[in-house]
Write a protein that binds this DNA or RNA. Structure first.
Lengths: 150, 150
DNA sequence: GAGATTGGTTGCATAATTAAACCAATCATG
DNA sequence: CATGATTGGTTTAATTATGCAACCAATCTC
């Protein structure tokens, strides 16, 4: 396969994000982490991923700063994987993916898990707005490219 | 690789979304589509993806309903790939990825492309809020699981 | 109507993923 | 504190996915 192209140097922030979490398993692991899973075995069971691949992905996520390895409750030598502050900043990505899935990938009557505000029990909203508060769709936004520098 | 597990049946909407656009190239193609690219050759040049893989990914994106194949301007037999309404609903995902990248994957002085409101030229905001308008972070939200049905 | 461009397809080499077997260190139990 | 189970991996071999290069038919350009 000749080493997949890295997007580290891309000037597009979305591309760089995908470089870090854009492979098949990483976001699923992160989803489970948001869901409260922390242990190697929990991820393995939840995802049905091969153990060697899970090992590698967890290491990558740790070295990217998305997860961290902390000792389980006091004293134990065992470790658990927890979302770092950076990892928690993937929350909007998860919510956006969820919203897309809810809208397009479930039959009308089909049941699915829901993300709700802990305080009110009501669903959360995600919106994209201009500074003045107007809601912004894909056609109201423009990407300003970085000038190709030499 | 023994057929990658499908997440079609997962009750988590994020997982289903990842099932559709969670592979290495699909979201990059979608990003380019948001960027205005439409032709096979444009995607191929922009991404440096192998042509056979691009062929397959485009087909998958079309059959998922994210892209559609429409004739280029009047008469020509050539086709172009355009985002469908469903595809445009990936906008929040792209914005969320972008925001994450901007925050964590660029050096402070480093330049990157910017997403701005077409009307004002000002950056767009993405926020997640409860019904009453309070901003919601990962710790203020809970996922309500679908009861395991038999 | 000749050559270039577009949008692929095919075949082969290589990398990534998998399943299964194995293993050392820890943990729970009596 | 000895024994067995659990946890968190590693290793190996087989299979699948990806990439590259060569090729090709249909269009476009002039």
């Amino acid at each position: 396969m000749v080493a997949r192209k890295s997007l580290k140097g891309d000037y597009c922030p979305s591309a760089r994000s995908l470089d870090v979490i854009g492979d098949w398993w990483s976001l699923l692991i992160v989803r489970d982490a948001f869901d409260g899973l922390t242990r190697f075995g929990e991820f393995q069971k939840s995802l049905g991923i091969a153990k060697n691949i899970l090992t590698e992905r967890l290491r990558t996520l740790v070295s990217s700063g998305i997860l961290e390895l902390v000792p389980t409750n006091e004293g134990g030598a065992r470790m658990e994987y927890r979302l770092t502050a950076m990892g928690k900043d993937l929350f909007p990505v998860m919510v956006a993916l969820r919203q897309f899935g809810e809208r397009h990938l479930f039959a009308p009557a089909e049941d699915h898990s829901r993300l709700v505000d802990r305080a009110s029990g009501q669903p959360v909203r995600l919106d994209i707005r201009a500074q003045d508060g107007r809601s912004i769709g894909p056609d109201e936004a423009v990407i300003l490219k970085v000038p190709e520098q030499e």
